[in-house]
């Protein structure tokens, strides 16, 4: 569980959200809403010859209703009913996931930088 108080203001992101690796700006201030709900996300690094990805349950997400709310983001090809979110510039990730059905995107607070 993260301490979210320093990055949340009125349920939204108080700071800009950036890629932790290359600083590419993902979300502008106050463009996403906080959701506290456990959801699995594949780990950024996976052991070789791993057939099904190792995931971790993450509890805090920035919910983005419209993909054009993002300043910069990459969407992976579809896996099942979701796409994974990667940095638009360095392509590292997954930084979150996108639900193809609801069209909502979820950025993991634990995988990004708040500036």
């Amino acid at each position: 569980m993260l301490d979210t108080s320093s990055v949340v203001s009125e349920g939204q992101n108080k700071c800009a959200v950036k890629c932790p690796h290359c600083d590419s700006q993902i979300l502008s201030v106050k463009s996403a809403a906080l959701l506290s709900e456990a959801h699995p996300l594949p780990n950024p690094t996976q052991p070789k010859e791993q057939h099904s990805p190792i995931t971790e349950d993450l509890a805090e997400w920035w919910v983005v209703e419209d993909m054009f709310t993002f300043d910069n983001i990459g969407f992976s090809h579809t896996v099942g009913t979701t796409k994974y979110l990667v940095c638009a510039d360095c392509e590292r990730g997954p930084l979150g996931w996108h639900d193809n059905t609801s069209k909502k995107s979820y950025v993991a607070l634990a995988r990004v930088k708040h500036v």
Binding site: M67, N72, F75, H77, A88
Partner: peptide, 8 residues
């Protein structure tokens, strides 16, 4: 998996 598209 590869990148499908990007928003910039």
């Amino acid at each position: 998996i590869g990148v499908d598209f990007k928003v910039k």
